[in-house]
């Protein structure tokens, strides 16, 4: 199984530990199935590699030397919800940088900028992130601005809150550590993407700029999250009894917003969550890639007969 999915044999860098932590953080069993982790890792890697290739073509088209965040955000342009999430992501990162690097919080910011105004440069942010600028550029109708509520984020947070409701401290601590996992190399100021780049681009055949890696990091995290979310949906479907009008309220898998309103019925069971199996992840992928309507649907004539490439993250 693992050999089939891991792409070019053995690579020294892998994100298995991080991904297993992330899955735990999203609501999987504390000890996710190892085979599932390998599968998810290979999915994420494959997706990102496809993405980089496509971005590389775009980059060539506009005669750029480096693949920048512009190219990757361009790939995301169709999914407004995810653009909005990226938009918020930049805001959060900027805030955190401001706080952690100079240890100066936002109320004092006015003063600092006041002092530094004459120097025309804000030292708090070394290099400005440009994701939001690009998002605005692609989003001509200002659809991203219209979205006021991030439902995905909300659901994930509700789920996390439900999971932690009845945890003891030891378990909560482990859970918190798991939630801190990301595709970045480490905490602190020098959060680097060295490992991510080694993982995606070991031979350095593509030139990836730092902002591009930041977006890729976001996308990778989002992919894992989407897979786990979808697995919970699949489980919920599997539980559904045909003809029972109340089956949707049974919940138990923290995902259905309808069932979340009836908080009484939600088991905040955490121990009881069985580890996500390989079969479930495959089912999720099948659902993602089964053409239903639209471009890849039944009545769509695929001229070049190429496989549809869709990204799980957007």
């Amino acid at each position: 199984m693992a050999n089939y999915f891991t792409m070019e044999g053995t690579e020294s860098t892998n994100f298995q530990k991080e991904i297993s932590n992330m899955m735990h953080g999203f609501g999987d069993n504390p000890n996710p199935n190892a085979a599932t982790v390998v599968l998810v890792e290979s999915i994420v890697q494959q997706q990102l590699k496809f993405m980089i290739q496509e971005a590389h073509q775009l980059c060539n088209l506009r005669c750029g030397k480096w693949i920048t965040n512009y190219d990757i955000i361009y790939l995301m342009r169709k999914n407004i919800v995810k653009l909005k999430r990226l938009h918020d992501y930049q805001l959060k990162l900027d805030q955190i940088d401001k706080k952690c690097i100079l240890n100066i919080a936002s109320p004092a910011e006015s003063l600092i900028t006041g002092i530094i105004l004459e120097d025309e440069k804000d030292p708090t942010i070394k290099k400005r992130r440009t994701h939001i600028d690009y998002i605005r550029e692609f989003d001509e109708a200002d659809e991203v601005g219209q979205i006021k509520f991030d439902a995905i984020d909300y659901l994930r947070k509700v789920r996390a809150a439900k999971i932690t409701e009845s945890m003891t401290f030891d378990k909560y601590e482990a859970y918190h550590k798991a939630r801190c996992a990301s595709f970045r190399s480490g905490y602190g100021i020098g959060k680097g993407f060295a490992k991510l780049e080694r993982w995606l681009n070991p031979m350095k055949e593509f030139k990836l700029s730092q902002p591009a890696l930041e977006v890729l990091c976001f996308v990778a995290y989002e992919t894992v999250a989407e897979i786990v979310d979808a697995v919970f949906l699949v489980r919920q479907d599997a539980k559904k009894k045909s003809g029972d009008p109340f089956s949707k309220f049974e919940g138990g898998y923290f995902c259905n917003p309808v069932s979340l309103h009836n908080a009484v019925y939600i088991k905040s069971g955490y121990e009881g969550v069985p580890a996500i199996t390989v079969a479930e992840v495959r089912e999720v992928l099948r659902r993602y890639y089964t053409p239903k309507v639209g471009m890849n649907g039944l009545f769509y004539r695929n001229m070049s007969l190429d496989l549809p490439i869709r990204y799980i993250a957007f």
């Binding site: 953080g25 959060k92 955190i96 932690t164 601590e173 918190h176 905490y187």
Partner: peptide
């Protein structure tokens, strides 16, 4: 110890908690 998720849920307008970016909860 504090349950940050629950705090974030209840005080959403003041608190922001993104553990993958920063392990603490920021309460304005």
């Amino acid at each position: 110890p504090i349950r940050l998720e629950a705090l974030q849920q209840a005080h959403g307008q003041f608190a922001s908690y993104e553990p993958e970016l920063f392990p603490g909860l920021v309460y304005r």
